[in-house]
Design a protein around this nucleic acid. Structure first.
Lengths: 117, 117
DNA sequence: CATAAATATTCCTTGACAGGAATATTCATT
DNA sequence: AATGAATATTCCTGTCAAGGAATATTTATG
């Protein structure tokens, strides 16, 4: 998998920008206003998102309108698909599992997250 | 959304570690071997993944066995769900759309990605 | 043509992070 | 107790990314 899109999304303000653009295209100024960013930072973040292919841009007179592109997000989604089995494990045989657990015949009784240091 | 897991995954070696662990738990040494990393770097990356909640750890005598945790990945997956409409747009009304486009009544005939500088 | 609005870019500083090398820690084995 | 194996931690260094401030660029408008 490509880590370019992930790096771009790992910055909190950029993640918020992406969530904003989910509801439709916005100009730089609108993004800056709604997130309380200074204009140059909004421009810079949008530039990073653009270079990562996460947004489109189209000039409209004075302004620049940025719009979300689906492809990189879909790519991450596709990657996650190969992990979906992890949390979609079925509970059809939960009773059986617990029985085995009690007999102490199972290999991996991991501690819960909370038990760890 | 939380960016902790995203930051952890944005590092190429860590992303590879996660892909390795998809097929089952591994020790530090096994991770290092399979990715051609030095042991300390493997330990450090696993530490970051652990702090991000992406992996479990359980000591086994001399070794430490790391295992993937579903929760953070599922969290990202859930977040992406709100964007899925972007690439699952239906084409039922494509003909209508093209007709409107020809009449020049539509607001957003964006340039293609390739047209951009 | 001068000015203002919207946006991009540059420069600077600071903090985080990754890898390398060395060392510390923990546990099993003899 | 001494040694070795597996792992963690520390220290160092270089790189990179983010925000602030200032400035450049582009376009509309009077």
């Amino acid at each position: 998998m490509n880590t370019v899109a992930l790096s771009a999304l790992a910055e909190p303000n950029r993640l918020l920008i992406v969530e904003l653009l989910r509801d439709g295209p916005l100009t730089v100024g609108e993004v800056a206003d709604r997130l309380g960013l200074r204009q140059p930072q909004a421009s810079k973040h949008l530039k990073v998102l653009h270079e990562a292919g996460i947004v489109d841009m189209r000039p409209e007179a004075n302004r620049r309108i940025y719009r979300l592109r689906p492809e990189p997000l879909k790519e991450i989604d596709d990657w996650l698909e190969s992990f979906r089995g992890l949390w979609e494990a079925r509970f059809d045989h939960l009773a059986d599992y617990l029985r085995e657990l009690q007999k102490g015949t199972l290999p991996f009784p991991f501690p819960s997250k909370e038990d760890e240091s």
